[in-house]
Amino acid sequence: MTSAIGVDAARPKGALARLLQRKLAVFGLILIAVVLAGAVFAPLLASFPPDMQNFDGLTIQGAPMPPGGAYPMGTDLLGRDLFSRILYGARTSLIIGVVANGLALLIGTLVGITAGYFRGWIGAVLMRFTDLMMAFPALLLAICLAAIFSPSLWIVALVIALVSWVQTARVIYTETTSLAERDFIAAERTLGAGTGRILFRHILPHLIPTIIVWGTLGISTTVLLEATLSFLGVGVQPPTPSWGNIIFENQTYFQSAPWLVFIPGAAIILLALAFNLVGDALRDVLDPTQRGRA
């Protein structure tokens, strides 16, 4: 959503219109809008509070109820309405997606732009550190960090940001190095512009399309990472619902009550898919070298 507005600001007209011509991108935007609406209006849409253990929410044998009747998506192992938990879980996914990814983007951009502009030893140190992070088994690191801290929503977001800024840093670095050699930057420097001015007034604006593209694609990665951590039980902790921890909690019922795994699973896939589709379309739309190509 924010990216669509950002596009408009970066290139008045044109980009947004071209984006809306792509069926898949529009499909992605609609999906995002639906999830966003679900998250924002969760209290209005949900028929039950997400943590309420309904006393008619379990069968006589004490098993979860299948979808239907008062519970459109069935109930979970504690008799809670799955639909309500999915709606509130959307909040978790979006908050983590936006916060963790925003943080990763911020770190990545700062590292990339600094390394790319200053080169020298600062650049060398930063980029060697980035290489090092590339060699890290990121998921293993994230699981380890999340398991050791007792994770709150914000710790999970922080952990995800710490393992996912690297890609952005590499891309921003490459673009900054080539921008820094362009004539208008040299001219600006000759005119006596300070480093801060060059970086933020002249280089950063050129990086905005890249940041928008990576920011959008990155949300998909962070949503998946949060789901995975929560599925392993080291992410967002119950009773706060998250699509990943709904699956984690109900895993034991996976054979008899598969909807408890596959409804949240489908939600994760659709949200990640939506951001991937929009991000990919943005890349084509914003990258001038791609213009005019299919």
């Binding site: 898949l24 998909s220 998946l224 789901a227 995975t228 599925f231 990943g244 699956i247 996976f254 054979q255 598969p258 795994v261 596959f262 699973g265 994760i268 896939i269 990640a272 898919l273 991937n276 589709l277 990919d280």
Partner: peptide, 18 residues
């Protein structure tokens, strides 16, 4: 191909198992 890169490993693993 977009769907496959958007699907978390554990969901597809559980689906295949199911």
């Amino acid at each position: 191909s977009f769907v496959t890169v958007s699907a978390p490993q554990f969901v597809v693993s559980l689906l295949m198992l199911y």
